[in-house]
Design a binder for these strands. Structure first.
Lengths: 392, 392
DNA sequence: AGCGCTTGCTTAATCGTTACATGTTACGCG
DNA sequence: CGCGTAACATGTAACGATTAAGCAAGCGCT
């Protein structure tokens, strides 16, 4: 796999500086330039300062109070005045100062969102749902990737509280204490949990029905004739890991099958984890005929490694995922999985958050989004020899 | 593909409310509770209010100025006093109010990051690099997904300016005007462009050497014996799209091949785009033997659809990607692609940003990160019949 | 003692916006 | 005419931190 080209010999990702024709002046103060020759700013007294409400007021010959109200479209100001103010503000490029407003109102119009892995397409979808709703209400979203590190999550929460966020949407890190959450909530910050529940917490939660989804999936595998069904991945300290595990157990028990503890392998979350665990699965005695994975990432990892090991994913070993993330229907074989309503979860959580912020009554407790089985190719009936899709 | 289970009949993603044993009181004012029985807050005059510097000062019998300085570890305050203040603040759970500080200092310690698609694993990697560096300096990151919609990008920039962000890291949307960027920069907000360059802009830029990477890749395909090489995807209005296209052209011309305009298909960015374009590729006359895709997503889409069409990706049609995003080396066939140093780009951009903010001299112009060819299975030598990896 | 310097803290003036309590008109009506 | 009442607009005091300028005490040195 040697690289034929001479340029590949350089060390990876070294950086070259190319100069543009129009050169940027470097050195202190360049970007904080004092010269403000540009049109609209000529009249501001102190050069280098931005326009304030007061400046607009002075120009327009009205008070700052009126300007403030006008810009916020208050009915206390005559329509005509409102328009005049807004037009002028736009004309001179006035920039509202949220720090000042926040200080005064102790509202920030910011919502913090913390999840353990934004790179996981599943969360990306949740995020899309959140953003869709919150952007509509002019909320700014602050994101944190805590990677299940409690310290990072705590740091992030501290920062958010310092910014006086209106609310916090949290997929709580492993180890999060319910007391901390309740305490923050008592401080007047709206909190909604997503994806993972936390026992003992008094804030709303929106998540998929992991137990039920996992039950459905396991039952499906049983219906396909499987008896040796492994359950791999998921953290037992998170509700999703626990619930999906319990769903698997319950389905087995309901079918009169004793869960084989050797086939219960927790703590895997990523594609790499999925790849790494395959030898263990293939060498188990008796060897499972189906593997129910905690999420799609793990399933894809398993799929890859199983194929490398010379076992054909699907016909020779059924593999299922969870989440139905984008693209898994296009894999070979197409992944049988559980759609989790990620975007719906995001939207619902955002709406719940907005209600809390506006002081509207919020349906208390956990809101469960109903999961849906997506039957595709990676978990065919046992013994049923589906040809691989790849033509040969 | 009917679903056997009765529960699948329900409409998708309906939500059920499950009540927790400990019920959340609903109704106005619950979360803005006035009762503040908890320990440390007993002494605060107005119930429901957070502690201020002044409150600490009063308790400690010193002035707010001293408290402020102490918390920021200023040498102007005696070491002993500093410790006393910090200990007490921690003890009573004082929360710093950034709005107030921001208002006073017109610094926010926030950095805005806008890209066109955070769901693209490539940007996720850039983001990881950014975060790593910026978190170190206690900067809060604000994210925007502008999806190449100028309006969204503008809205986001407005919001950020209102928040008085210290800096802006931007993968500029198609249509972004250089004047706007320069103007913001002149207002004292540090700006660094990433991934995409913008002619006429006077701010630093960190990006991959798209021209060179694409050249390398095309040359590699030519070395493998290909002559009919399609270039698909990329927006001509973005520097990355243009440069990768030009690299392709240059490599062809240097090899004495005339670029076939029919094989130059722009504007594709996603997996779906890649799938959709396949019929057009397969029906081109003469049919290309290799497809150089703008990015990995497009390549994966092409790969899927080509296989569906009964053509074996790799041996029968060489396919290459760009970015070397996570997991593409595990696909079947493993994707030949160009590593783009995404995380490096993120880190470099963040460092450049920090320097600008601190008024340090910034190397001007464009910083190019050197690309690296990753030769794998999806683009084997022409006529060379690699067996498919899937065992049959 | 007197001078200058350092150390450690305080005073008080901001920063730009908003909420509250008042003004000021103008107009209709008894 | 004079009063009540809308309809608009304004004056002003916060909000909570930062920071320049100032003050007081203590020290070393002549």
């Amino acid at each position: 796999m040697g690289c034929a080209n001479q340029l590949c010999e350089a060390e990876p990702f070294t950086a070259l500086i190319y100069r543009r024709s129009s050169c940027l002046l470097s050195g202190e103060g360049v970007l904080r330039s004092q010269s403000r020759a540009s049109l609209e700013y000529q009249d501001v007294r102190a050069a280098g300062k931005r326009l304030r409400l007061g400046d607009l007021a002075e120009k327009l010959g009205i008070s700052t109070a009126t300007v403030s109200l006008a810009l916020r479209d208050s009915p206390l100001v005559a329509k005509e005045t409102r328009q005049r103010v807004k037009d002028y503000a736009a004309e001179v490029g006035y920039i509202y100062n949220r720090s000042a407003a926040s200080l005064r109102t102790s509202q920030s119009d910011m919502i913090g969102v913390a999840v353990h892995d934004i790179l996981n397409p599943y969360f990306a979808e949740v995020f899309r749902g959140l953003e869709e709703v919150l952007a509509e209400e002019d909320k700014t979203i602050l994101i944190c990737n805590h990677r299940d590190m409690l310290k990072r999550q705590d740091q992030f929460i501290d920062t958010l509280l310092q910014h006086r966020v209106d609310g916090l949407i949290l997929c709580p890190s492993v180890g999060t204490s319910p007391e901390r959450i309740n305490q923050i909530s008592e401080q007047g910050v709206a909190i909604t949990l997503v994806c993972r529940d936390l026992p003992g917490v008094q804030t709303p939660c929106v998540r998929g029905d992991d137990y039920h989804g996992s039950y459905l999936m396991t039952k499906h595998l049983i219906d396909q004739g499987h008896r040796q069904i492994a359950m791999i991945g998921g953290r037992r300290q998170s509700s999703s890991g626990r619930d999906r595990n319990n769903g698997w157990r319950a389905a087995l028990v309901d079918a009169g099958i004793d869960p084989d503890e050797q086939l219960d392998i927790p703590e895997l979350m990523t594609q790499a984890d999925g790849q790494a665990v395959v030898p263990r699965i293939l060498s188990a005695i008796p060897r499972p005929t189906a593997v129910a994975c905690f999420n799609d990432l793990v399933a894809l990892g398993v799929l890859t490694a199983v194929r490398r090991a010379g076992v054909e994913p699907g016909p020779e070993l059924a593999i299922t995922g969870y989440d139905d993330t984008e693209g898994v229907q296009n894999r070979t074989p197409a992944l049988t999985t559980v759609a989790n309503g990620a975007e719906t979860i995001g939207r619902e959580a955002a709406q719940m958050m907005l209600k809390q912020i506006n002081g509207e009554p919020v349906p208390s407790g956990i809101k469960l989004i109903k999961p849906e089985l997506r039957i595709r190719e990676s978990a065919p009936p046992i013994g049923c020899r589906l040809g691989p899709v790849v033509g040969v």
